[in-house]
């Protein structure tokens, strides 16, 4: 599709149109986070100018001085869980696709069963387990649950992609005398970098946004996550929408940064792979 100005214009037309569709609701969230509750409903599409402008929402978020702590907790939990999901997931997928051993197929199926039932149903057993382990109100508990929750889908997708990685590269590495461990870390991992980035991008979202497990496993002041912190603005009859929108607008920033980093990895991985191949 060498650049033909007409088709290039059509392409950008489509992209801009879809961007508008994706962005409009987000824009509404952002502008309404700078309004009071009354301002939001008086005219939701108006820009927060003049009378409408209010930083009340942001002030209520800031007034609760613990939000930096909540952000730290969310980031810690999300990043550590992600590293574990990606690393252990890729290792397991590699083990399953690369080597033939007894029970290989069964283990593969077993490892993806977790996609089919939400872990949330096992909450009580999990809580009892963490009570026994003395891990309630710790971030470790959250990391363990999110890792266990994210592994099946990561293994599933990694397995699919690893099946299409050619064996020749690995075999030539073996001939060069690389150990099985080095083959994984030095040959296979770089090869599937784009997929790792893709899985990272969508594994982090449910972790970052989860409300349920922080609520049950670590509701303590010290271990509260952002999503849980925001709940204080959501009451039975009165919801402080300005504060909710303000907090959530800010809460997009860290995931957005993570996304940008991962998607750079994705591109870099692919171009690097292309050069090699």
């Amino acid at each position: 599709m060498r650049s033909n100005p007409l088709s290039s214009m059509a392409i950008h037309g489509v992209l801009i149109l879809y961007s508008a569709l994706a962005l409009f609701p987000l824009l509404l969230i952002a502008i309404n986070s700078f309004k009071s509750k009354k301002g939001i409903f008086r005219d939701p599409t108006a820009l927060p100018l003049g009378e409408l402008y209010s930083t009340k929402g942001y002030q209520s978020v800031l007034a609760n001085g613990d939000f930096p702590l909540y952000f730290g907790n969310s980031l810690t939990v999300t990043l550590i869980s992600l590293v574990l999901i990606l690393l252990l997931g890729a290792m397991a997928a590699h083990g399953l696709t690369e080597y033939r051993f007894k029970g290989n197929g069964l283990l593969g199926l077993y490892l993806i069963l977790g996609i089919m039932v939400p872990i949330r149903l096992g909450t009580v057993a999990l809580l009892e387990l963490f009570v026994k382990l003395g891990l309630t109100n710790t971030l470790t508990a959250l990391v363990l649950v999110y890792t266990a929750q994210g592994l099946p889908i990561a293994i599933f997708i990694f397995t699919e992609f690893l099946k299409s990685v050619s064996g020749e590269i690995k075999d030539s590495a073996r001939i060069d005398g690389l150990s099985e461990y080095r083959i994984f870390f030095e040959v296979v991992l770089p090869l599937i970098r784009p997929v790792i980035a893709t899985v990272a991008v969508f594994s982090m979202i449910p972790i970052w946004n989860d409300l349920w497990f922080p609520l049950i496993l670590s509701p303590g002041e010290e271990t509260r996550t952002v999503t849980l912190g925001i709940q204080q603005f959501i009451g039975q009859y009165t919801v402080n929408w300005s504060a909710v929108l303000a907090a959530l607008t800010v809460a997009i920033v860290p995931v957005l940064i993570m996304y940008v980093i991962f998607s750079k990895q994705l591109i870099r991985g692919i171009t690097a792979g292309a050069v090699k191949g």
Partner: peptide, 24 residues
């Protein structure tokens, strides 16, 4: 090395996903 690759994931997943789900 096969144990090294598959055991950690299997272990975490079994204890913190499969066990509670089966319990339920």
């Amino acid at each position: 090395y096969i144990v090294f690759f598959v055991a950690p994931a299997t272990l975490i997943y079994t204890v913190f996903a499969i066990y509670p789900i089966v319990e339920s």
